[in-house]
C-alpha cells in the first residue's frame, strides 16, 4: 500500500462570529496517498479553501490531527510551520499572489531564499529551470503586471515547484482564467503529477474534476459520501 502524504483525523475549524459559531470544517477525516491527483469539489462556502489552508499549514485546526509526510503539525511553532510551507508543500492561489514589485524570476527565487543556505547563483539557476519547466523561459524578466493571467499562474506554479515539494496544493487555480487557458494549466498539473508529485486542487469545474483520478466532495464542512 502506498504511503499517505496527507492524513486528516476528525479535523475541525470553527470561527467565532460574535455569538454563534461558523463550522467551516466540521469533522473531516481523509488520507491522500503519494502521487495521487485529487480534486476537491463542492459549493461555495462548503469549506474547500479552509481545508486547503489547513493542509498547506497556513492555518491551524480548532481540533483534530493533520499529518504532512507522516509528521503531525499540532503544536508546531510558527517557524516550524513556515518550514513545512517552504519545504513540503507548494501552494497555488486563484489570484496568483505574485509579488508585484519584482520580476517573474525573482518571484520564483523567493522560496529558495527562505529555504536558507542556497546561494544566489543556485537560486537563479533553479528558478530559471522551474520557469523553463512551465514554459516561461522567455518571460523571466517581466513583472507580474506585464504577464497574462495564464502566464501569471505559470509563474506561481514555478514558484510552488522550485523547492521541489512532494505536495502541490492549488485552490481554484483556473478560477480566474478562461476555459482554454484553464485547460492548459490543468495539463501542466497532470504533467507534474505524472512525475510522481501529489497534487490536490480545488475546482468548481465538473469537467476538470472528472479528469482527476479522485474526487472529494465537501458540503457544509463535511465530506459527502
Amino acid at each position: 500500500m502506498a504511503k499517505s502524504v496527507i492524513s486528516l483525523y476528525d479535523v475541525r475549524r470553527y470561527y467565532m462570529m460574535g455569538d454563534f459559531i461558523v463550522k467551516a470544517l466540521d469533522g473531516v477525516s481523509l488520507a491522500i496517498e503519494e502521487g495521487e491527483f485529487t480534486a476537491i469539489m463542492g459549493p461555495s462556502g462548503s469549506g474547500k479553501s479552509t481545508l486547503m489552508n489547513l493542509i498547506g499549514c497556513l492555518d491551524t485546526p480548532t481540533d483534530g490531527i493533520i499529518q504532512i509526510d507522516g509528521e503531525g503539525t499540532m503544536g508546531m511553532s510558527e517557524a516550524e510551520l513556515a518550514f513545512v510551507r517552504n519545504q513540503k508543500v507548494g501552494f497555488i492561489f486563484q489570484q496568483f499572489n505574485l509579488l508585484g514589485k519584482i520580476n517573474a524570476l525573482e518571484n520564483v527565487m523567493t522560496p529558495l531564499l527562505y529555504a536558507g543556505g542556497v546561494g544566489i547563483r543556485e537560486r537563479r539557476e533553479r528558478a530559471k529551470f522551474a520557469l523553463e519547466r512551465v514554459g516561461l523561459a522567455d518571460r523571466m524578466h517581466h513583472r507580474p503586471n506585464e504577464l497574462s493571467g495564464g502566464q501569471k499562474q505559470r509563474v506561481a506554479i514555478a514558484r510552488a515547484l522550485v523547492n521541489n515539494p512532494s505536495i502541490l496544493l492549488a485552490d481554484e487555480p483556473t478560477g480566474a482564467l478562461d476555459t482554454t487557458t484553464g485547460r492548459q494549466i490543468l495539463e501542466l498539473f497532470e504533467e507534474i503529477n505524472s512525475e510522481g508529485r501529489t497534487v490536490v486542487l480545488v475546482t468548481h469545474d465538473r469537467e476538470i474534476g472528472m479528469r482527476c483520478r479522485r474526487q472529494i466532495r465537501l458540503r457544509d464542512g463535511k465530506l459527502e459520501a
Binding site: 498547506g56 497556513l58 513556515a82 518550514f83 510551507r85 517552504n86 523567493t110 522560496p111 527562505y114 514558484r159
Partner: peptide, 8 residues
C-alpha cells in the same frame, strides 16, 4: 504571500 512561501 511571503509567509505562504515559507518566510518565518
Amino acid at each position: 504571500v511571503r509567509k505562504a512561501m515559507g518566510a518565518s
